[in-house]
Design a protein around this nucleic acid. Sequence first.
DNA 1: TTACAAACATGAGTAATCCTCACATTTGCA
DNA 2: TGCAAATGTGAGGATTACTCATGTTTGTAA
Lengths: 213, 213
Amino acid sequence: MDEKVSAKADQAAIASPRRAPSQQRSRERVERMLAAASALIAEQGSDAMRMGEVAEKAGVSIGSLYQFFPDKRAIVWALAERYTAESQACISAALKDVGDAEGFKSAFSELVDIYYQLFLAEPVIRDVWSGTQADKALRELELADSRANADFLVAVLKRLRPGADPVQLETTAFLVWQMGEATVRLAISVDREEGDRLVAAYKGMALRELVGK
Amino acid sequence: MDEKVSAKADQAAIASPRRAPSQQRSRERVERMLAAASALIAEQGSDAMRMGEVAEKAGVSIGSLYQFFPDKRAIVWALAERYTAESQACISAALKDVGDAEGFKSAFSELVDIYYQLFLAEPVIRDVWSGTQADKALRELELADSRANADFLVAVLKRLRPGADPVQLETTAFLVWQMGEATVRLAISVDREEGDRLVAAYKGMALRELVGK
DNA sequence: TTACAAACATGAGTAATCCTCACATTTGCA
DNA sequence: TGCAAATGTGAGGATTACTCATGTTTGTAA
């Protein structure tokens, strides 16, 4: 009972540590668990995902699941972290070699497309982020991720527009990036045609904002 | 069991109908239930809200709760619907008498401020919408709400820019409105100073997009 | 090879929680 | 006043996240 109380009091607490898999066998089993969770989330959403189903689909016992994941949220978190790392790598790669405004425009446009395709291909991503608002820890992971991504934008923009006010630049970049994430999430929940229009409209809006008309 | 299966199969199903309160006494009790739920959501979030607590706080039995709300989601839905109605009224009022571009600018700016204040003052609102992505029915309510609000914008913009392409206009208005909601939600989850900056940046961005530079 | 500790695996059981249902009480009205 | 419909109740059924006592496998040092 006292355990439950403390869990409530500190909702943002990171899941208490569990053994990390150190043997080949267990590493493979953990992979299977994550793959099973991913598939189930894609089917029904992370909320409807049942720990028993994850275990069954992964071919492990329920106890093994809890050997490596302290609770249900930790599984979602683990998947979220993977996508976060993936997206950051993708962004830094896309923006690394931008030299002028034209280069930025095409790099940014391509970046948005990649994101859009990623979300279209992996409905799990959206679902992994779905609990974002409800789960404080996930919300903060997402915010940190977004800031990190915006920082890439800021770094590039500072090169392109040396005279601009840094605070203004950071605010704009952060906002534009958040808008991009919101747009993509929105785009994949409407029909494809409208989604494409929305993404295109966002691109124009963002570019006007970031590099002027 | 078969009941459970059907519930899973149709996650978006609106909660099965329950008796609507027809007597004065029960109407008051339902109000108390919603007030209790609202207070609990403000404290701990809708996910942590316990039906037993709602009943206790409202001074009714658990059975009475289920007399009027088929399930937990229905309570959240009921609160969400109220805010939806409120916001629509607020928007239509703010945009009703807009005549020219200048009038639109100030009306829009004021509208955003009102929204921002509303979210700042009522953390329940954010929490009510927090499950939005996970809960299909809520997600669709939010989308419908957003479209309805964007339609107000479209109507005004058609008056201000008669020559513009209607599809383009609708896409932009819908996007800008969604961005606004995302901005406000973002703004209240960072510190006040940054939140203010983000909202201001959004206003500039949206107005440039909607009525040009 | 063998002994042994640490890592790993198991699944029946515990606790928390949503929701039902059989029965009691109150209200509006003929 | 009597009665049907509306409302009120809370113990208990059903589901599910998570634990733990116990058994099995693996790496390793003698």
